[in-house]
Design a protein around this nucleic acid. Structure first.
Lengths: 210, 210
DNA sequence: TCATATTATGAATTATCGTTCATATAAAGT
DNA sequence: ACTTTATATGAACGATAATTCATAATATGA
């Protein structure tokens, strides 16, 4: 972040750590935690195995840090939108679009995040940070829908279920798309998800596009 | 299946194999493939490690067979509904309800199935059978929606997206529920999913309940 | 009852992988 | 140039876990 204050050495050290994390995300996102060895990460990042342990206490630590970075990145991208002053329907639309943009720029990251936290959770090393962030975002979406209903913008649907539906659909769609990423297709698909959910939610008098 | 034709020995052998598979599903569904050892399975099933290898070539074989059984069970439950003569909207409603019932009776099975095939796929040993079944069901749901649109029962929505949305919502909901299963809650939730999707799809003149 | 065939056993083997650490390399300071 | 400090290296270690196999137990049928 504030890398003006740093010496060249410190900056290089950060770069190295970053290189290791980048190599890791590539490998983990397509093989999964248990099918990637520290050897593999060492080769991919062009460091020696021992060097990895200068940066991370253990393989689990490395993985946890990776997931937490990922969760934070997602949080920093999406939270401002959810906290903005947009009307509830526009908030949801913007949220979906931002998800698409984020996915485009961070496909391995998001693939890993969705595959690990989409369903699984119990199995891999984690300290709960990423799950907390997921829960916070889920709750916020739920709030937005509730408040949209209160303001007579949305129809009075079951909030829990539509939140689950919206988020699981976005996540599944992006996960499917990530197998062979195609920018145009993803944008088109997410626009359709936006239409499906937001237009379904809107009470007719608020609809402007069809 | 046709265990009338079998000797007692053959029947017992099948029972043993079944006991091993049942022990495995319990363990895999709450620890995941890589966190369950053949030792663990041996203890849980009350056989020796070596005995497991009289029934299965390898741990991967065992897992693959388990997943394939699971997929077949789901297929046999759901396919008849999708092929029935019900009107398209009733087909979807029945499908959702059958999913709930199936989940109730086979919670470990379905938890394993969804967690492995909900998102992940690449990471675990598999021969593609379970994926094929998933694809076949997905395609069939898509067809039903298309045909509902053709018959003016459903609104002309984007078929791909609504299929993805419906199935990913069902799967996420059941997976979430499986963490602490509660029959009433699951039935209630799936009824809401049914309402959300099927009622959204129906063109107003076909609606009977609200 | 005894010989044969079937099935079960679990200690031993083998392989993999996370982790450590003595050593090498390179940078910084004097 | 020489000392000190920081960083990188990868062979060696130890633990875990899949798999094998010689042996034991059990069932079958003559």
């Amino acid at each position: 972040m504030a890398n003006v204050e740093m010496t060249r050495k410190e900056r290089e050290k950060l770069m190295h750590k970053d290189a290791i994390l980048n190599a890791s995300v590539r490998l983990f996102s397509d093989k999964g935690f248990h099918n990637v060895s520290m050897q593999d990460i060492a080769e991919e990042s062009e460091f020696a195995v021992g060097t990895l342990y200068n940066f991370f206490q253990s393989k689990e630590q490395l993985f946890t840090e990776l997931m937490n970075n990922c969760a934070d990145k997602i949080y920093n991208t999406l939270w401002p939108i959810l906290e903005s002053n947009l009307r509830q329907d526009e908030k949801l639309r913007t949220f979906v679009r931002a998800y698409a943009k984020f996915a485009e720029d961070n496909i391995e990251f998001i693939r890993l995040y969705i595959s690990e936290y989409g369903t699984l959770t119990l199995i891999l090393p984690h300290d709960g940070h990423a799950e907390k962030i997921k829960a916070v975002i889920d709750a916020k979406i739920s709030d937005i829908i509730k408040s949209g209903i209160k303001n007579n913008i949305f129809r009075p649907v079951d909030t829990e279920i539509i939140t689950l539906a919206l988020l699981s659909t976005i996540r599944s769609f992006i996960f499917e798309s990530s197998k062979e990423f195609n920018k145009a297709k993803v944008e088109q698909g997410l626009k359709k998800i936006e239409q499906l959910f937001v237009d379904t939610l809107l009470i007719p008098e608020n609809r402007s596009n069809g």
